[in-house]
Design a protein around this nucleic acid. Structure first.
Length: 453
DNA sequence: TCTGGGGTCCTAGGACCC
DNA sequence: TCTGGGGTCCTAGGACCC
């Protein structure tokens, strides 16, 4: 029996024991299969049959695996060095992350979706995922045909294979998508959950930790309560969710699982409330000068992001993370984050007005003799830059600074990311990250265009 | 030897005010 | 002996996501 708070769904005779959800829009999640690996493969057809992995910045972790690499037992988010043997043994193709390429391919996929269903029906959720609002009057057959067609169109236009899950709510569509992907041979990468019976079957096959919104903390907690499948979780009441799964967040999750849509489509949130640039160092760093250079560079990167959204930051914070000796149990852990925070006298997006306090804060945080592995800059209290109030005397400077910033942004954008940089960014760069397997930026750099040979 | 980077939302608790 | 109640704002920290 359907237990959501919405009106009881009508009977649709085409499916045994199935009631359909005709009263609300179905939602689809479109998810690119092994996105980063697929992007790398696009320009190297030879890799089609070969396992592929893509590494995080610094070539530290494995952040994307092709199906073949998964089958070999290469773990997600696993450290590269731990899998090196396996990778070499099976001739796995390895790439450092190439975000220029992925960003551009992502844009092409999203554009294809927008053209297919209308721009206001698409919510870009991440670089490789988008939610789509589907018309509510589609019959099951139409829904499935439409979705299959969409999948083919994306593949044809961009070369990227996607999986699509369709269901009455976002959480359920994620469940559908996961199963579609897991059973490609049967589903052809598309799964529609629009009857109670199908939803139940899907939830019974889904472990509680695979539900969108249940992280490992909550999963452990639920398992201790003998709730191991998504279906079992769905049987709980809202009070339970409120008490054990993070208050209103948990309640929303449970409602969605029960088929009641509470997570709406979000219009694109282009203005960020916080902008961060943080990096691991290529190797541990002990000297203050290097850390200052790194922080100055991260600050100018963050300032670029800030200007791109026409924002000005009201406050800035800086952190460093020292290298920790390994824990007694041998498990990896992060060192403590040592941070400093400053409210700026005037909200700004001018790079040197941000670098100056950032570097000052780093000097205060730094302890001689200590080794550091990571640093970062966070800009927050972001306001539109038109709203910034400056004193009378700032005006001349303001104008000049703005012109300088515009010029730098233009040159950096059209040339390379770091042609122009502040002297404070330094030139030694022994903190710079390692990228040993970088593929060309085929689609965004003229001199790295794909060559047909 | 070697474990990413960039976000969001929510809550609790303290400070402060009337 | 015994010290209100309700509101706002802020920050730190927890949880989650890809």
């Amino acid at each position: 029996m359907y237990t959501g708070l919405v009106a009881a769904p009508l009977r649709w005779s085409g499916w045994p024991g199935g009631s359909v959800h005709p009263l609300f829009c179905m939602k689809a999640i479109v998810d690119c299969n092994s996105f980063y690996c697929s992007c790398e493969r696009l320009f190297k057809p030879k890799l089609a049959q070969q396992p592929v992995v893509v590494l995080s910045n610094n070539d530290g972790c494995i952040i994307a695996r092709s199906d073949e690499a998964k089958a070999l037992g290469v773990g997600m988010a696993a450290p590269y060095f731990q899998n090196k043997h396996l990778i070499e043994q099976h001739n796995v193709a390895v790439f450092s992350s190439n975000y220029n390429l992925y960003g551009d391919m992502s844009w092409r996929v999203m554009e294809t979706l927008r053209q297919a269903v209308g721009p206001d029906k698409v919510e870009v959720y991440s670089v490789d995922e988008a939610f789509i609002d589907l018309d509510d009057d589609m019959s099951t057959a139409t829904l499935h045909a439409f979705t299959m067609n969409l999948r083919q169109q994306v593949e044809q236009w961009t070369g990227i294979k996607v999986s699509i899950g369709v269901a009455p709510t976002k959480v359920l569509s994620k469940v559908a998508n996961r199963l579609a992907k897991k059973n490609k041979a049967i589903t052809n990468c598309v799964l529609v959950l629009n009857t109670e019976r199908r939803i139940q079957q899907a939830l019974e096959k889904t472990a509680v930790e695979d539900v969108w919104g249940v992280g490992h903390r909550y999963a452990q907690k639920l398992q201790r309560m003998n709730i191991t499948t998504a279906w079992q979780l769905r049987q709980q009441n809202l009070l339970f969710a409120r008490n054990h799964l993070g208050g209103v967040v948990g309640e929303r999750l449970l409602r969605e699982l029960q088929g009641q849509p509470v997570l709406g489509m979000k219009e694109e949130l282009k203005v960020k409330k916080m902008i961060a640039t943080t990096r691991m160092f290529g190797q541990t760093v002990t000297d203050l000068q290097s850390i200052k250079e790194a922080v100055a560079t991260y600050t100018s990167r963050a300032a670029e992001k800030l200007r791109r959204q026409h924002g000005a930051a009201g406050s800035i914070s800086v952190f460093v993370i020292p290298k920790e000796p390994p824990a007694a149990d041998g498990r990896f852990r992060h060192g403590p984050t040592i941070s400093n925070y400053m409210v700026l006298p005037v909200a700004t997006s001018v790079t040197h007005e941000l670098i100056k306090p950032a570097v000052q804060m780093v000097e205060a945080l730094y302890e001689p003799g200590r080794a550091y592995k990571k640093a970062g800059v966070l800009l927050s209290d972001i306001v539109p830059d038109t709203a910034v109030q400056r004193s009378l005397f700032d005006h001349a400077m303001d104008d000049r600074s703005r012109k300088l910033m515009d010029m730098m942004d233009n040159i950096n954008f059209s040339q390379r990311n770091d042609v122009l940089k502040y002297a404070a960014g330094g030139t030694t760069r022994n903190w710079k990250m390692q990228q040993n397997f970088h593929s060309p930026r085929y689609t965004t750099r003229w001199n790295e265009l794909f060559e047909i040979g």
